[in-house]
């Protein structure tokens, strides 16, 4: 018996006055990795922001259930504490807030919600050191302000570090490969793969097939004009790589 983690029904959403998500349907069960592929401008990032509750992204109709609960009625932080996590395409820089301070606030907010005791400084530092080592994150990077002056690769490593310490039940990877060279991509993919389990799920958003060689999905969906136009197995991604998006986009116009 499969347990649905995320159920999206007829979702429509807009940014300002522009309708971007138009009747989106998808159910993701525990243990599954889904990939969404689509051309630039199809609304892929909008979908991830809508799911996270970013201000300015307005849901006009439809339902989203996360672990059986109404996701859309939760605040941004409640969604995160319930186990929704977004690896952002362009993580923002936060001058003046050191990485360790930020991570400590985040992990303790999540632990508090799970009714687990807050981590004290020594156990927190131990955890961070262990996980950072696996991702090739230096001690110096942890002391710096969040993402300030980080290279594309360093930013994505920090996103992956957060994934590994916050242990979300559902992670969205929004163009996780953008700005990465092949070595950094492998490190990030290894970090993400290490978190895969039967109890959690992932949604990988990308417009290149390349990332899916490293994070192999169970299902691939083609996303165009605000909704899914075709679904299939991992071979669909390879097919796309050959034929391009034009065929799918045209069919819908």
């Amino acid at each position: 018996m499969k347990t649905p983690l995320l159920e999206i029904e007829d979702l429509c959403a807009r940014v300002q006055d522009k309708e971007i998500i138009k009747g989106f349907n998808l159910t993701i069960n525990a243990g599954e990795v889904h990939a969404i592929m689509g051309p630039n401008g199809a609304g892929k990032s909008t979908l991830s922001y809508v799911l996270c509750g970013k201000p300015g992204y307005e849901v006009t109709s439809g339902k989203v259930r996360f672990k059986g609960q109404d996701l859309l009625s939760m605040s941004v932080e409640e969604r995160a504490r319930e186990g929704l996590f977004l690896i952002m395409q362009y993580p923002v820089e936060i001058p003046g807030v050191p990485v360790t301070t930020f991570l400590k606030h985040a992990i303790n907010a999540v632990r508090k919600h799970r009714q687990e005791p807050e981590l004290d400084t020594p156990s927190f530092l131990k955890l961070i050191r262990e996980e950072s080592k696996k991702l090739g994150i230096s001690a110096d990077m942890l002391k710096r302000p969040v993402n300030v002056g980080f290279s594309g690769g360093e930013k994505k490593r920090l996103e992956t570090l957060q994934l590994s310490i916050l242990k979300p039940s559902f992670a969205i990877l929004d163009e996780a490969d953008s700005g990465l060279d092949i070595d950094a991509l492998k490190v990030v993919a290894d970090g993400v793969n290490a978190e895969r389990s039967d109890s959690n799920a992932m949604l990988v958003i990308t417009h290149y097939q390349r990332l899916l060689n490293y994070i192999v999905p169970d299902f691939v969906h083609i996303f165009a004009d605000g909704h899914i136009v075709q679904s299939g197995g991992k071979e669909l991604a390879l097919e796309l790589e050959e034929s391009g998006y034009a065929r799918f986009v045209k069919e819908n116009n």
């Binding site: 970013k54 932080e77 996590f85 923002v92 001058p95 807030v97 907010a109 302000p145």
Partner: peptide, 28 residues
């Protein structure tokens, strides 16, 4: 900065706590 606030909240940090972190950073 709305983007900074959203980023912190999307990691589970409450809105007031996120604001305080940004204020602390501002006055640092």
């Amino acid at each position: 900065d709305e983007e900074q606030l959203f980023y912190m909240r999307s990691r589970g940090i409450g809105e007031d706590e996120a604001k305080q972190l940004l204020i602390d950073a501002y006055l640092e």
